[in-house]
Write a protein that binds this DNA or RNA. Structure first.
Lengths: 343, 343
DNA sequence: TTGTATGCGTTATCAC
DNA sequence: GTGATAACGCATACAA
């Protein structure tokens, strides 16, 4: 009924050459004479031959694939990054494996699984949770150079990292609000164990101090980047006796749902409350009022990370430089920020 | 400096057994005596052995991986589905490969690449664009049973398909608006080559007819599921001399940006214009006014598709049943729909 | 430029 | 219940 898959020997036979020649035609066509090369390609066409990846991988000790570790695939912030990572690797003949690191298995586990059993040649992790122990393990296997952080990172572990300039982003947000005249600014944070959340919060505090603003403890509202945490934050904010006139949110999702809830409670944005987000996800510009936010160039982040890893996979095991690259951020002023009431 | 990776022979040596026994310990532990099994596992632990996937794959002629073909990874609608597909396969020892079918290469090409070269055992495609030719190709290779449609599908190609009950969804949307008293209803479509867009539009038209409503040609506004197409649609809608009092949008993203643009133009939602979306993406409930929409259970869709494919991969090449499963949809009534003005 | 021969690391078949 | 060994399909060192 169905033909058995053609193997390299079949092609060789049809082309009247050896298997070595067929193999060379595939991997280093330059080394063949024009004539045989043509014969081989013709034979490949007529037989419908496809290289068996498992065999090639076994022989070359490569996987031809990379793993992308994504914290919460459902989050649109990450999926666009994944998309641009995919573009780069697809263009270079690599497959892209994904794994949602919210899965029960810890990131450490997943990374070592894929790397050590040869399922992936390298890893881009969008999840900053990786242990120092894992670092040791990787180093011992000389696999340290095959892992790259993107967006998030870990202070416990020195690895190449592509990230947005988060400190600048937080500074731009605070300065923007201050320039509008706000003196009472709240902050809705990300998860306390998240490196981005920590940086943004810490810069927020520093920058407020820099401007001589004091921050009531109540004004630091815990969140976790999600929509629902934004709604909860809004409720806490609204209930405050001494309510801030502005709020800097650690993510756009927080900001958007906070705005929605605040509006439902009768607060006007930006007249009663100014809001700044972080990320500039696509919908930020398509709500009303449109969200003022800090833009991260997600496509660029993904591309940079992919190219960094690609370079490492293709270059010889050179001295371990550990570059940290910062992607630019930008304040996008839209319509959720204005001078404070009564000014 | 670094130890060479332990191979199965190393484990066998340490455990004092043959490689065959080690292999059996890994794949069919029941067939070993308690004692040797323990010895082998101990040896695996002490050596730090990991099965080499390429070798196993070559030998077993399986990939232990599936490909998910996603049209536009950046779209949050798909990423949650991907997430639940990932969960199912991760739990069953499969890796998940992703490919953004918006890439230059056509879906056909990608699917045949991955399947024919043994990179993937099966494919879940969220992209309905697949040719009948491709179907023939797959059938000839007896690979037809390894492809499953999810969400979208193709009429040209009979394959198992997991999809939402789109006709019901569109009907619920129209009926809801009619029940509120609307008689002039517009529709913003998806891309004309998209099967979902076509179904939703056609049911919209049928259902309007059923209710005795006529639809002006202007009221069918072309879109493409995206935010920006929603904004464009809003402008066309606003400019209409005889403006509908309600609009059924083929996606939530269309609906949300349409609302935003309409509001900016001074229209009140839902007082002046009622809006129904489709999908119930997460943010739909976190904007103000919250979006009335048709919920698709994305996690369920992904899970069902994954389980369908998993079953096919694990079962013997049984008679080719081609099930089409419908996931339930549901009208989620929120705050963007109300009776038409003056009623 | 091309061919020969070996081995990548595992599983499966067949013995015992 | 366990061991010896061939085979999976390819790329490469070496020879010609």
């Amino acid at each position: 009924m169905q033909m058995p898959k053609p193997r390299i020997t079949d092609v060789a036979q049809v082309a009247g050459v050896s298997t070595a020649t067929v193999s060379r035609a595939l991997t280093q066509p330059d080394r063949l004479s024009e004539k045989t090369r043509q014969r081989v390609f013709d034979a490949i066409r007529t037989t419908g031959y496809r290289v068996n990846r498992a065999a090639r991988n076994l022989r070359t000790q490569r996987a031809g694939a990379v793993l992308v570790l994504v914290p919460n695939l459902g989050n649109p912030f990450f999926s666009l990054i994944l998309s641009s990572i995919n573009d780069v690797f697809a263009a270079n003949g690599y497959s892209v494996l994904v794994f949602d690191s919210q899965q029960p298995s810890a990131p450490d586990q997943v990374v070592s699984d894929y790397l050590f059993n040869g399922s992936a040649d390298g890893v881009i992790t969008l999840d900053g949770h990786m242990s120092a122990t894992m670092g040791e393990t990787l180093k011992n296997a000389d696999l340290l150079r095959n892992v790259v952080f993107c967006c998030e990172w870990s202070d416990k572990l020195l690895l190449p990292s592509i990230r947005s300039d988060n400190p600048l982003g937080a500074r731009l947000a605070v300065d923007h609000l201050v320039a509008l005249g706000h003196r009472k600014i709240a902050h809705v944070t990300g998860p306390s164990d998240n490196i981005l959340a920590r940086v943004r919060r810490s810069v927020f505090e520093d920058r407020c101090a820099h401007h001589g603003l004091s921050i009531a403890p109540d004004w630091i509202i815990p969140g976790d980047f999600t929509l629902s945490s934004g709604a909860r934050a809004a409720e806490r904010l609204i209930a405050l006796a001494d309510r801030p006139t502005a709020v800097f949110c650690a993510s756009d999702e927080i900001a958007l749902s906070l705005i929605s809830r605040a509006q439902q409670a009768g607060l006007r944005v930006p007249e009663d409350l100014s809001v700044v987000g972080f990320d500039d996800i696509e919908i930020a510009g398509h709500v009303s009022p449109a969200l003022t936010t800090i833009r991260q160039d997600r496509a660029l982040l993904g591309r940079m990370a992919a190219e960094e890893l690609l370079g490492r996979l293709q270059s010889d095991p050179s001295p371990h430089a550990v570059p940290i690259s910062f992607a630019p951020v930008e304040l996008i002023t839209r319509s959720t920020t204005a001078p404070p009431p009564g000014r």
